[in-house]
Design a protein around this nucleic acid. Structure first.
Lengths: 186, 186
DNA sequence: CAATCTATTTATAAAGC
DNA sequence: TGCTTTATAAATAGATT
């Protein structure tokens, strides 16, 4: 899709790789967004750069999707090992749910932080008109911080989804892409 | 990208929507695969169709990611015992608890920073004249926050790996495009 | 439905700012 | 690192089987 065709193999030049990473990541998220809108689908994506920097995309939001999956996992978990009380002996799901709950709380915290940040913003503007540019820098790093935390939280949630997906053969996990033609089993 | 340009709005015709969903989902996963290979990135995607059927993509496999994070865990020497093979004596609950603990810590950090932010806010009000120095202090504080949260977030990342490791015996999530063979480890 | 087949639209590789 | 621009490679909408 460019001046030249490129091989789908790891880009050796760090610079080229970085540029490509940015462009394609953006493109991927755009595609994901279009897919979610066009087809009413819910999508969560987490990407770790080669430097382990996380980037995430979610519609309506990774947390929502994670919660949704957890619920489904809980329902279909009957197929697994559950005792008479309806509890999972190994309590994995319980832990997962608790974990998810905490993640939710953390996100709430983050949102509150955002509000605080906004208020902060107001006051600072009133008193530091002169330091506007510097302030903006501060705000940017602050937002970046929050964004980073959010990305990590999202990464954890997607991981949960993936893990549960792997554990629950409930529905098919997509595998095939180009040439592979594996028939669905189970 | 087709015979005609289409609006990015929910497709009302169920049939068209279904077809588009399949095509674009495939395309999205293909793009994700290319991105991961070209840029050495790790990607996880979870998609729920309008009918709530889950589809996922992950590259590379969970085991690979887990191994990678495990190394980082070893460095941060998190008091976790790992044998020569890189395996740990099955204590999923321990991992869960640790993760919960880490998350709890992050929450605490966030709350603390919230207080700090409020404090700074106060000071700025009281000492409007010394805005610049106050500002710099605030900025330093935020940078510190950034670093601290980053450290905690790294801790979470490691914990996440632990969970993945614990789940490992289950199944690999990835069935990446090219039909890679998943090696079985007891 | 799922696979094929084009006409077109998009994404993007390269190069320059 | 982030935009632009431009030539090309890819993706895909719509139709067909």
């Amino acid at each position: 899709m460019g001046r030249r065709k490129i091989e789908i193999a790891t880009l050796k030049d760090p610079n080229t790789r970085q540029v490509t990473f940015s462009k394609r990541r953006t493109g991927l998220f755009k595609k994901a967004n279009e897919l979610s809108i066009l087809c009413g689908a819910e999508i969560a994506i987490v990407v770790f750069s080669i430097g382990n920097k996380p980037y995430s995309f979610g519609h309506p939001g990774v947390d929502v999707i994670a919660a949704k999956f957890l619920q489904e996992a809980a329902n279909s978990s009957d197929a697994k090992q559950i005792d008479a009380q309806g509890n999972n002996p190994s309590n994995e799901l319980g832990d997962m749910n608790r974990l998810n709950q905490q993640l939710s709380d953390v996100q709430t915290q983050i949102l509150e932080e955002e509000k605080k940040g906004a208020e902060h913003d107001e006051r600072l503007k009133q008193h530091q008109v002169t330091q506007l540019s510097q302030y903006k820098e501060l705000q940017a790093s602050y937002l970046e911080l929050q964004h980073r935390v959010k990305d990590y939280v999202n990464a954890i949630e997607v991981s949960e989804c993936m893990i549960l997906l792997a554990q629950e053969p409930v529905v098919g996990i997509t595998k095939q892409m180009t040439a592979t033609k594996r028939r669905k089993k189970n």
